[in-house]
Nucleic acid binder design. Structure first.
Lengths: 194, 194
DNA sequence: ACCTGAACACCGTTCAAGT
DNA sequence: ACCTGAACACCGTTCAAGT
């Protein structure tokens, strides 16, 4: 395994274990079995290392969305599975999820990272478009509908993780939120919601 | 003006100008006209200073939501104004917004901060409940519906800021997203959407 | 080509001392 | 009670040197 791959792997592990502040070049070096500035031989600096990691993760996400599109099931089932996998990713890899979707420094990057992020959203939008064609989602502009779904699920994941939706009376889970959203979005409510 | 207030004000300014990493105690001290460790006389450490700032901001947000509830207009108009103000806050004070809703270290805090965050969401949920009573929103459980709305708007703000919803074909604005969500949520679609 | 170790500037935090 | 300045450990980054 190449050193650069080991460095990315170490960074991902540290990120999920202790958040972005735990990803110090010294810790990355130690976990990877190299010195604290060996990473500079593979990435221009710490920020660039994190950007490379984010790019890789966005590519995985796009591939996962694409794979759901290939399954031989109803379009709405594909979309539900994709949404489920999306929220599961946020739960399993909170550090990486935060890096991809809520890190302002990472968000500034153009080029490969931005391209990979766009590709992820485009792959997701394809699933939405397919549902619309099948009449399972309303015939509004696809980018708007896909954006709303993407944003809502992200918001649910983010707020669930931060506990910002708790009240005295109750709170909301990501799964419930997605179910409610799909329910209100269904053109024929009684048919789609079992 | 008390030193502790000046410190919080300086921290807020630095936060919006350069993100959380720009809020160093040395910079806060300099902007406040005190030494780099005077903050320790008012807050136990840097994290606690940021938590105090977040608490203050959540209280402002809760007060703003409450104020919209007092206006003499239709319930749905109150809600729309509140959502509009919410997204405007995210645009005007990106650093503070990120601190309140997407900072994992801040999210861990219990006590006053957690209480203030819950109070903000509760105040928002009241506006949603009023819309439901007036028949302007569906009669599903209020925490679920309020949570979905809160999460969706947060997701739209967050993804718009990070540019994660762009595609080759188009992208989505917060305002459009809110409008679309309220449109699909309206029980009598034709009536509510003008 | 890839890596190491020393060095530098910066930061959070602690501590002794000042009014 | 409130503040300051020195000091310490840690971090990103640079640089000269090693294979």
């Amino acid at each position: 395994m190449k050193t650069s791959e080991r460095i990315l792997e170490s960074a991902a592990a540290l990120l999920d274990a202790g958040g972005t502040s735990a990803v110090t070049l010294r810790a990355v070096g130690q976990v990877s079995g190299v010195s604290h500035n060996a990473p500079y031989k593979h990435f221009v600096n710490r920020d660039s290392l994190l950007a490379a990691l984010a790019t890789q993760e966005f590519q995985k996400l796009a591939a996962a969305f694409f794979a759901f599109g290939q399954e031989k099931v109803q379009p709405l089932t594909k979309l539900k599975r994709a949404l489920q996998a999306f929220s599961q990713y946020g739960r399993d890899y909170p550090g990486r999820y935060q890096l991809l979707f809520s890190d302002p420094d990472i968000a500034k990057h153009e080029g490969a990272l931005s391209q990979a992020a766009m590709a992820s959203f485009s792959a997701f939008a394809l699933l939405v478009a397919e549902c619309q064609k099948a009449g399972a989602l309303p015939a509004v502009p696809t980018p708007a509908l896909a954006g709303l779904l993407y944003a809502s699920v992200h918001g649910l994941i983010d707020l669930e993780a931060s506990g910002r939706m708790k009240t005295e009376k109750g709170f909301m889970s990501v799964t419930e939120g997605i179910a409610l959203l799909l329910k209100v979005l269904a053109p024929e409510k009684n048919e789609v919601l079992q």
